[in-house]
């Protein structure tokens, strides 16, 4: 029982990290209608920026916050210079550009910071607390708490504020939003900025576990995609639930099923992506698109 609880908790913690990156994906998708394949790589760059501030002597928390600000600027620059020029070209042009950005960001990080993995300090203490016979790491609880706060803030932004409403409007029908006098281009730009900042948080959460390197986000990004797909690409809450489901599924199943050693654990998110996209393409909480021809 204790072992199971422990696995569930570490699954929730890992799932929170997937969920945080999935949130960034959802934010871009919801505010601009693009799947940003470079989201993981942008988060990786953000993590390097956090680390650089930290190495300059800035306290860790402040370093992450500074990196969030830088990431916001990077996000809006990416939207303005790379995404906007192809917006409205073909349906997938923007997504293909983000694949290009994936490759470029990866190379830039390697060029600037080198490919050797570097350590990253944890935002939380390394202690653990006892809970019902299980030892639960404080860092795990911290990751969980950060994600809950993040999703709550994003939920408020989207559902309860005017800016959030206009962001949703600008994403689904820019022409209509424009006719209502909304500054659509600024809204789209902020969407990319905010999601890049969210990605910086995800990066800071995962970095202590995987070390910082240009390839650090590869598998995490797949898990995040799975989480976003599972929850429905347009639902922040869904992204978080999706992250938790995948994290817990992996942590609970992998040690209990012989066939799925740690090598094949990646099959778990993959299977989930497959099943969800085939059975319910809109995800668990996503809204089925109203299609008209």
């Amino acid at each position: 029982m204790g072992a199971l609880l422990q696995d569930v908790m570490s699954g929730l913690a890992a799932g929170s990290i997937y969920g945080a990156l999935a949130l960034a994906l959802v934010f871009v998708f919801r505010s601009t209608g693009v799947v940003n394949f470079a989201q993981g790589e942008m988060a990786m760059i953000s993590t390097y920026i956090s680390l650089s501030f930290y190495n300059l002597g800035v306290p860790l928390l402040a370093a992450v916050v500074l990196s969030m600000a830088c990431s916001f600027l990077i996000g809006i620059t990416v939207e303005r210079t790379l995404i906007r020029p192809v917006a409205g070209r073909t349906a997938h042009a923007a997504s293909i550009v983000t694949v290009g950005l994936f490759l470029a960001a990866n190379g830039i990080a390697g060029y600037v910071w080198g490919v050797e993995p570097r350590g990253f300090p944890s935002l939380f203490s390394r202690e653990s607390v006892g809970l019902g016979g299980a030892r639960i790491a404080v860092a795990d609880l911290g990751a969980l708490a950060v994600l809950v706060v993040l999703v709550f803030l994003l939920f408020l932004l989207f559902e309860k504020t005017r800016v959030g409403l206009m962001m949703r409007a600008a994403a689904s029908q820019p022409a209509s939003a424009r006719m209502a006098g909304a500054p659509v281009s600024n809204l789209l730009m902020s969407g990319w900025g905010i999601s890049a900042a969210v990605g910086a948080v995800a990066g800071a959460l995962i970095a202590p576990a995987v070390f910082v390197s240009p390839g650090m986000m590869g598998p995490v990004f797949i898990y995040a995609l799975a989480a976003a797909a599972l929850g429905g690409l347009s639902s922040p809450l869904g992204a978080v639930l999706g992250g938790w489901i995948i994290g817990v599924a992996e942590a609970v199943i992998a040690p209990r099923v012989d066939f799925i050693g740690s090598q094949l654990a990646i099959l778990i998110p993959l299977t989930i992506i497959f099943l969800v996209l085939l059975l319910r393409p809109a995800g668990l909480l996503g809204v089925q698109e109203v299609k008209r021809v």
Binding site: V97, G107, I108, A109
Partner: peptide
Amino acid sequence: SLTGVIYGTAVI
């Protein structure tokens, strides 16, 4: 590492 930079830039 420049490989990625060049690929990515070229795609974009």
